[in-house]
Design a protein around this nucleic acid. Structure first.
Lengths: 154, 154
DNA sequence: TCATATATAATAATTATTATCATATAATAA
DNA sequence: TTATTATATGATAATAATTATTATATATGA
């Protein structure tokens, strides 16, 4: 557990954890670090295996508890694929995902928040704002990645 | 198992099932009927309970098998909520969902396909089209429905 | 350093989903 | 209509992911 870091997202989450009053354990720090550094949307098991390399006695329960906590704090987002696998994304900035239906690969796509809000604010769609208090959204595309598409053709 | 129906969506799915070469069993018909009539995005268990009222010996396995089949046929879509519950939607027309994070209620919202495609075709977002062959998308909003929001305030 | 509330690890329990396989039945053709 | 056959079903078992329980350990703040 290092004290120095050049990872602003990590710092940001740590700060929020302290602010809300949760304590910062080494395991928790490691989980947050993995999420903030990861570019490939790990599952709970992925994170578990990574944390185990540093803390071999860590329990899977700890991973789940922390992921639940971070999700409800809105510092982490869940991504659910068609294969019923749950992945986690430490990047809560406005973006969407493209999920390969064959291999399960998840790729980020940029969603321009202003554009998207413009789309949402259109007459057709803003009716629901009256009945719901929206706190977030997720946009996911399904299809085949290039590799699987090429393999499928042969 | 009725032969006459004034449910065009039901007819549509039945036709496709026959076209693809699957056989039309009474249980399967009932599952499709429930999905085509349902407005509230049932879970596998919900569907199971409804089918049981007509065919008390039906197996949950049959429900899952058929849901998997219909999903891969793209006649049914899965909706996964934050509570890790999987719901099914027999309406595959272009629309999104608003999911209450407290009670899990799922409401449809209209997504104008043209508007959305316009949004997608914007310069920022079309890059991913080169690497993926998109076959579908899902847009989900998370928040509190009016009831839960009001209850939360008190 | 101490006190205390919170987090952890070990374990068990739960839940949803999938696999297996013998039997039943829908579809097709005679 | 009946016989044939491939597919679907139901019963059961197995799997996998997640959650619950609880005693112990530890981060935090005094």
């Amino acid at each position: 557990m290092q004290n120095i870091s050049s990872n602003p997202r990590l710092e940001e989450i740590i700060l929020k954890i302290k602010k809300v009053g949760y304590s910062l354990t080494p395991q928790r720090y490691e989980i947050v670090k993995i999420l903030s550094e990861s570019k490939n949307h790990p599952t709970a098991a992925d994170i578990y295996n990574k944390v185990k390399m540093v803390y071999p006695m860590v329990s899977l329960n700890t991973i789940y508890k922390n992921l639940t906590m971070l999700t409800s704090m809105r510092e982490v987002k869940e991504i659910k694929t068609l294969q019923n696998a749950v992945h986690f994304d430490g990047d809560i900035s406005s973006h969407g995902h493209v999920i390969c239906e064959n291999c399960g690969k998840i790729t980020d796509i940029g969603i321009n928040a202003n554009d998207f809000n413009g789309f949402l604010k259109s007459d057709i769609n803003n009716a629901f704002n009256e009945d719901y208090h929206i706190r977030g959204y997720s946009i996911e595309f399904y299809g085949l990645c290039r590799d699987c598409y090429e393999a499928d053709k042969n």
